[in-house]
Design a protein around this nucleic acid. Sequence first.
DNA 1: CCCTCCTTGATACGCTCGTATCATTTGGTA
DNA 2: TACCAAATGATACGAGCGTATCAAGGAGGG
Lengths: 193, 193
Amino acid sequence: MVESTRRTEIMEAVERLLARGGLNAVTMRAVAAEADVSLRLVQYYGSTKDALLGAVLDRLADKSVERWQARARQRGYESPLEVITAFFDEALPTDRASQDFHRVGVCMEGLAITDPDMAGQAYQRHLSGLGDHLSGVLKSSGLSAKAARRLALEVMALAHGVGTLVMSGQLSEAEAQALIKNYLERLGPQLSR
Amino acid sequence: MVESTRRTEIMEAVERLLARGGLNAVTMRAVAAEADVSLRLVQYYGSTKDALLGAVLDRLADKSVERWQARARQRGYESPLEVITAFFDEALPTDRASQDFHRVGVCMEGLAITDPDMAGQAYQRHLSGLGDHLSGVLKSSGLSAKAARRLALEVMALAHGVGTLVMSGQLSEAEAQALIKNYLERLGPQLSR
DNA sequence: CCCTCCTTGATACGCTCGTATCATTTGGTA
DNA sequence: TACCAAATGATACGAGCGTATCAAGGAGGG
């Protein structure tokens, strides 16, 4: 199973379908149509459906963690509050790309509950990778290990929940930003103590 | 379409399947087996699958809102912090019942993204009902309308996110409670200002 | 009594799914 | 050139799904 261009194309097609219509939209035939290849090709490069989906989810988990690591490397050390503010900026589903990302996250969440064997592991890697990175950044800017991890997970949880409220129409984008701003204003003074 | 015992039994079977294995586990035949009736009966009382699922989700949304209204009626007026503390106590998936409830919530969340027509509406009713009630309680204990709604949604978002982290194994129950305790300690002083 | 309508049952149809099979092309190498 | 393995294509198969259809009990009023 070599890492060919074709295989990458097919995995990207899976990601697009996943982002657009959730898990149910991902069928071998739909992937073939989306990638504009034959069904046989999807089988050839992805072998079985579970294997293909697992590989895609792993890739997605890796990509999201790497995106954050690159971001941290680029911006250098920031204050915890800046780190968290930036995280919310990126995590809230304000544009199409982050909406897709959130949708995929929700799919993985559901899959992790339905079928813990396959997506559960990818989802856990996704969450723990993000959590480790975020808590690492927070720790390196002065927080204790325990406080950093706790805050990292709190921020991730809040971002996920607010993202869901936004995507389900309970919260407008502006309201979400106001909510986060309010949250950060409460959090800020506590961090610099 | 009368509200018969049979119909209730069938809807409860759907809820059990939903809580156990997610949406994919809900097939007409599986519902029949779970309710120990024939496939024809499921059709008879539930007509089509979408109608049955929609009815179940509506019922679930109503039940969750009613549960909260009853709770508020029973306990009477509390301080905002007490209300929120109680909310987290109930919302965190610490026992089997609330785990099932959270699982169903995640299913609805996923369905709302995949198929906004059916479950999307039920999910929105669920969220807005909960949000209205919670913000109403907070408002009646001294907060402004805007602040109450914002805080209600923030609390709901955090509870959902933390619930997901617990159920995916990122957070132990004790860690989750510590996280919430820490959050409430930060929130408390702000509320009494 | 029997007839009618609500209830229950058994089975069939058409569809889509994942997967398997057989055949063909292509590209590098002995 | 000959060849072999990787790559691609067309099609078939069995299973599970939602739904429809045909048929049989079963109770209550004319």
